[in-house]
Amino acid sequence: MSDASEQKEREAARLTRHAGLGDLEMLAARYRDHAYALHTHPTYVFGVVVAGVEKLRIGRRNHLAPAGSIIAVNPEDPHDGEKGCAVGWAYRTCYPDVTLMGEIADDLGLRGLPMFAEGILQASDLARGFVRAHSLAGQPLEQEAAMLVVLRRLASRFGGCSGRIHASDGGEPIRRFRLYGELIEADLAAGFDLARLASAAGVSRFQVIRDFHRTAAMTPGQYLRDRRIRAASALMRTDMPLAEIAVATGFADQSHLTRVFKTIKGLSPGAWRGAPPRKATTSRK
């Protein structure tokens, strides 16, 4: 078997989207050598490891997730992932947005969005239900209902920590961090260095580093890369060519974007962009 064929055999990823669940992205993947770089999502992340072991950091905590484990990541929480054993891991994940989870919270009578205090959950019944719902390809109505039920059960059983994503919403570090974010978002293609951010906030470069670590649990460089990939992902929902997206979001060229994108998303921009939608069965207002 050639090296390319062996790599294809041991690593595979397929993404689909379900319009009836707010264009919910669902990924089924098997990885051995792939490693996710530290990144965030504006959405939740839920997944079930179906084989092997994943090693991952969520927020400031390190975890091992063996087969049968449920992974739960709150919006904006930094996380990564890599193999936790020699054979790697296989899993199914989905990325529900806050609108969908808010609908679930309303149905449960929660006062705010469900927040998950633990990143790795053990509940064999929910793990089986999640995998079943995820596997209902080609059955949009059945999949919509099954996924809603299992997400509601997850929120009901484990999502009791309601409130804001970040407990601290005031103070000078938070104010400065918001300023850094505004500067970066205003021109993602610009070259940034610590001195520029420090000058804007009136602090030292060391304070900038501390602010990112305290507030985002990321380095400034990790945060910048994360925001560039999120912006590139949004542009990939348009017809804009990948080469132009790369330039607009601060990457050297299309190949640079492709390399970094795969470390965050687990598949190439072309595969992510071409993921087939699953049509909604009812209209959504």
Rank of each mutant, 00 (worst) to 15 (best):
F177M: 13
G171D: 06
V247I: 15
A186H: 12
G274H: 01
A234M: 08
S255G: 07
R228Q: 15
P241L: 08
Y180E: 04
T238Y: 06
R237S: 06
M218H: 12
L242E: 14
I184P: 10
A217T: 04
A195W: 04
R230M: 09
T249A: 07
G181P: 05
F212W: 07
P269Y: 00
G163M: 01
A246Y: 11
G221C: 07
Y180C: 06
I229K: 08
E185F: 03
R259P: 03
A246I: 08
I209A: 10
R210C: 09
L224M: 09
K265P: 01
M236T: 03
F177I: 00
S204D: 04
E182T: 10
Q207A: 15
A248D: 06
R259A: 11
A231Y: 14
E172V: 12
F212Q: 00
A216D: 10
A216R: 11
P241N: 08
T258P: 03
D239P: 06
Y180S: 04
S268V: 01
I245A: 11
Q207D: 13
D193E: 05
R225Q: 10
G202Q: 06
I229G: 06
K262W: 01
K262E: 15
A201C: 15
A201V: 09
F251Q: 00
H213N: 14
A248H: 08
I245C: 12
R230E: 14
A248S: 15
D193C: 12
E182M: 13
G266C: 01
W272H: 09
A186F: 02
S204H: 02
A271I: 11
P173H: 01
M218A: 03
S204E: 05
T263M: 10
S204I: 13
A217G: 13
G170C: 12
A271K: 03
T263F: 04
H256A: 14
R178Q: 14
A232K: 09
E244I: 07
D226P: 04
A243K: 14
A186P: 06
G266K: 00
A280S: 12
H256W: 03
K265R: 15
R196K: 14
P276N: 02
G274N: 12
L197A: 06
S162R: 07
L257N: 03
P269K: 00
G160E: 00
I165D: 05
G159H: 02
G266Q: 03
F177V: 01
R230S: 14
A167V: 09
A195M: 10
V247S: 14
T215K: 11
M218I: 11
R230Q: 11
A201S: 11
R225P: 09
R237I: 02
G181N: 14
H256G: 03
F212H: 07
K265W: 01
H166I: 06
E244R: 09
A201M: 07
A198Y: 06
D253C: 07
E185L: 15
Y223T: 09
P220R: 00
T238S: 14
R225D: 12
P276W: 00
H213W: 09
S162V: 10
G159N: 01
T215E: 15
R278W: 04
A198L: 08
L194K: 09
V247A: 15
L224C: 06
V203R: 06
P277H: 03
E182P: 05
V260C: 00
K279Q: 14
M236C: 05
T263S: 13
V260W: 00
A252L: 12
K265M: 07
A248R: 13
A275D: 02
A271V: 11
L183G: 13
F251E: 02
A186C: 07
F192Q: 09
R225H: 09
A189M: 11
D226T: 15
